[in-house]
Design a protein around this nucleic acid. Sequence first.
DNA 1: AAAATTCCCCATCATTTGATGGAAATCCGA
DNA 2: TCGGATTTCCATCAAATGATGGGGAATTTT
Lengths: 212, 212
Amino acid sequence: MTTALEKAKKNPESMKAKILFAARKVFGEYGFHGTTTRMIAKAVDIDISTLYYHWGEKGDLYEAVIRDINEGLRCKLVEVEKKIRGKPLGTRLDIAIDEMVDYLFENPEISNLTLMRYFMKTRHGKIMDFQVPEYISDIAYSMGLSEHRRNVPPDARMKVLNIMNAIHNYVSGENFFRPMVDLDRKEYIRMTKDTLKFFSLAAFAGERDAAV
Amino acid sequence: MTTALEKAKKNPESMKAKILFAARKVFGEYGFHGTTTRMIAKAVDIDISTLYYHWGEKGDLYEAVIRDINEGLRCKLVEVEKKIRGKPLGTRLDIAIDEMVDYLFENPEISNLTLMRYFMKTRHGKIMDFQVPEYISDIAYSMGLSEHRRNVPPDARMKVLNIMNAIHNYVSGENFFRPMVDLDRKEYIRMTKDTLKFFSLAAFAGERDAAV
DNA sequence: AAAATTCCCCATCATTTGATGGAAATCCGA
DNA sequence: TCGGATTTCCATCAAATGATGGGGAATTTT
């Protein structure tokens, strides 16, 4: 319990936490420049100055949101890693995909904000230049794509990126893609998992003899 | 030669075309709300009012940009479709991936803007609600994933989305991902192709007996 | 060359947006 | 209940931003 963020999340009823939660959703839909502090304040039904009282300037709130979703993602990955440890590669993929897809469909702002950070620049560049956690190597090792936890080869990293991004795409693009494939939400999630497995299971099965 | 957009592109030296080209790049980097008309004007080194003289309000210029990149993408897809027609599935994928990856790395704004449209909302929602071309079915048919050009099953659409989006991801995310995998640009493009093939070739080989 | 048209820039507006100071309201322990 | 600390809101500001009118330069037409 040191950072302001942690303090806010401790009591989800606190105004500070409510603002953070609303900010997650609004930033997640409209991006940094597409979101105004007034939009967030309206979502919580407070005056704009209350927002500034709790979080300071817009960039600081955004940074807190990014830290928040990164932390959530990190925790989830650790949780999944525990579940799949020791299992055969096919099973590892199967469980990991199911778990991550469900988690991200429940928290789509995570996928939205992650992708925005990958693909978009911000006018005031310096603001959001804090360090990005390096999940990729950990995932690669945990999936058994690399002998060493550190020093993961580039091709293994690229493969992990492929799968992670594919999940984010289906989650963030739901509004766009679901009408294209004409499925209800439940079917869409189901088919997201199936499609992800369609691509990854065959690929890795064909590659690894060390499929444990 | 009817629309303003076509007229502009006919003479790439015209002010109107230069503005369009600059707008592509700036919108592609910063998104709709992240881009100011002054940024675009500065990129062309003209006064902001000249920009308004040629293209009217910001939303209209943005719409022209989107039409432009969609048209480019459509043409490229038609071109690729001709090249792969009649070849075996593996070859089709191989050529299509190579061609599309090269094309999009040369025109990264296309991937950027496409992804932004998938994942982000705009404050003035109505503006950008013009129709999105339905490439997906055409690609699915052209790749041999569907018997009929029309009436492409959902799972085939999902698979096409997966591949197209994966390409866009690697292109748009280059600034972010390339340091992660520690490759120079050429190697990164090469490995993008390899990774895409790694996932799709195995998957489709295992699936289709009708691999022609 | 004169006239008409097109094109571009300067100055300026109105609105939006990030941000703040200070007054009112609320909470909380003594 | 009193008094201080915390929290919230109202009014407002300054800068950024989308947008326009009018004048003048450049180009084309006559």
